[in-house]
Amino acid sequence: MKSAVIVFPGSNCDHDMLRALTLMGHRAEFVWHKTGNLSGYDLAALPGGFSYGDYLRAGAIARFSAIMKAVADFAAKGKPVLGVCNGFQVLTEAGLLPGALLRNQNLRFICRPVYLRAENLRTRFTQAIPPGTALKIPIAHGEGRFHIDPQGLKQLQDREQIVFRYANARGETDPGANPNGSLDHIAGIINREGNVLGMMPHPERAMEAILGSEDGRRIFESLVA
């Protein structure tokens, strides 16, 4: 699989994403946002970080970058797009995913491992996740509280577009396990077509036992399967 890691000015999980994809056997390359070309790639990954400093609003400026037109075309062809953290924020700002990511409920940046329950195991990003497991994956964000209007939420629920929910170690959702106040405990969603996934937690930081968890691998394994 040949994968593009898109680099915006201010991206800072780009190297981590490249390493994660490489560990999983991808031929991964950085693609600079000004080039605007994704031809020949099988996956586009939008990494975490602070594109354009997150000034104005996370992802609000990056969505105007030349590469985003290419990402939209890439997604329209049905190719997989993965946005993690800031990448998720950019995808919502660009309209490739519904909803928005607001400041965390406690108005502070939060970095710690959380557990995720995979809600839909039939997506191309989740098919390798064993049913009933809670994935231990870290979060690190200041603006990660997912929000959407009631109608939008109902659509996400009805169409099984909610892919990950924050949960406890046993895989149960409870208010104490929701770190940022996300609506309906939402940690990650997919578009209606099933090829654009956005998630706030960082699977690329959970690839090796020495870093505390290998659960992030399940997501990348799904992709190559």
Partner: peptide, 9 residues
């Protein structure tokens, strides 16, 4: 926990 302790993995 207000610091990103894990970026760079």
């Amino acid at each position: 926990e207000q610091y990103d302790t894990q970026v760079q993995a």
